[in-house]
């Protein structure tokens, strides 16, 4: 039942993207909707600038949230090591491209494969052996794993921030008075690509359908001959891979260091919850929404409180809709502590 709701959500996503690429229409709408009278050109470009900043942040939250959802659907737990996958992806990419001077596409593949292996190892050695899993116990295990990965990353990559060259040129592009980095376009593009791959995988491949079946009803899926343990492993592999990609694409902009994981993870968790746990399309919308809210709050209210404003809105949404924007309350009941 988690999956039925996809279509309207994808539609709203389309609107968001359409509005970006058909900017003049948007401009007119902003003029009409926000103030009711003509605004100066610079106000429009400011809004656009904040939107770019917000969408860029939001894409990363969204990618982290998809990772959370994959594992949540398979196991019912929140994987606190999700942020660590992002960090390892970023750091590995830095080593491969900046130290070993590999071409970016090759490094991209190697890094994703490497982090996917870490995800599989994590599932095999820490989640799979647990005989009587309870949600809280598994969560604490993921916290322990995140501490270990963080410690290992610190020993291996040291404590400094690492920076990496942009995928393409670092020259900014002008866009109706606002500026955008080519890297941001890469981020948006890769997010869209992942979403497309995600929809294809879960709707048109056997493995994907098996994973969905497990997410909806694990016992029934097992009765139908699906190896649910294997699906759990697969979910860890995929979510680690997606985490790695998030790390890879964001590192040129933010610089990566070993300690960033927890914060990225918490933001991603917020996006996953706001979108409705288990609903990955909801997570994408929610992730971008949180990013944009933060940027607008920083731009128009106060940079001191920008994170708090996004959180307050998140809480208010939860109070009104206890299962998130796009989550169903029935699905929520299935997986409790």
């Amino acid at each position: 039942m988690i999956w039925i709701q996809h279509d309207p959500v994808i539609d709203s996503g389309h609107i968001l993207l359409k509005s970006l690429f058909f900017y003049p229409v948007l401009k007119k709408q902003i003029r009409k909707n926000i103030t009711g009278r003509a605004m100066t050109e610079s106000t429009i470009s400011d809004i656009l600038q904040f939107m770019f900043m917000g969408i860029q942040r939001g894409c990363i939250y969204a990618l982290a949230a998809i990772g959370f959802n994959m594992i949540y659907n398979a196991t019912g737990i929140i994987n606190f090591a999700q942020g660590e996958f992002v960090v390892i992806g970023g750091l590995m990419m830095v080593t491969l491209t900046m130290t070993w001077n590999l071409p970016i596409p090759l490094a991209f593949l190697l890094t994703t494969a490497f982090v996917t292996l870490i995800g599989i190892a994590m599932e095999r050695f820490t989640i799979n052996p647990v005989k009587h899993p309870t949600v809280l116990r598994l969560i604490i295990i993921t916290i322990a794993v995140s501490i270990i990965i963080k410690g290992a990353a610190m020993c291996f990559w040291g404590k400094n921030s690492h920076f990496m060259r942009h995928f393409s040129s670092a020259e900014t592009l002008d866009f109706y008075g606002a500026t955008i980095l080519p890297q941001t376009i890469w981020i948006i593009g890769i997010l869209l690509f992942i979403v497309a791959g995600y929809i294809f995988f879960f709707n048109y491949t056997m493995t994907g359908k098996c994973m969905r079946a497990c997410a909806i009803n694990r016992d029934a899926a097992r009765l139908a001959g699906i190896n649910d343990r294997k699906m759990v492993m697969l979910s860890f592999a995929l979510s680690a891979g997606i985490g790695a990609i998030a790390g890879i694409i964001i590192t040129p902009i933010i610089q990566m260091d070993y300690a960033r994981g927890a914060l990225l993870g918490i933001k991603g968790f917020g996006a996953a919850v706001l979108g409705g746990l288990g609903n990955s399309m909801g997570a994408i919308i929610a992730g971008v929404l949180i990013g944009v809210l933060e940027a607008l709050a920083a731009g128009y209210i106060s940079s001191h409180y920008m994170d708090a404003i996004a959180l307050i809105i998140l809480l208010l949404v939860l109070f009104v809709r206890p299962s998130g924007l796009f989550g169903s309350s029935e699905a929520m009941r299935l997986k409790e502590f």
């Binding site: 610079s42 964001i250 933010i254 610089q255 940027a295 920083a298």
Partner: peptide
Amino acid sequence: TDMTAQLVKIKNAGAQAVVNWSIEPAQA
């Protein structure tokens, strides 16, 4: 990870210079 919103505000306020005060890597 991104300070463009703050900098846009500084620009709009008509500042002639920016002072960035931090010791963390984020300042770069």
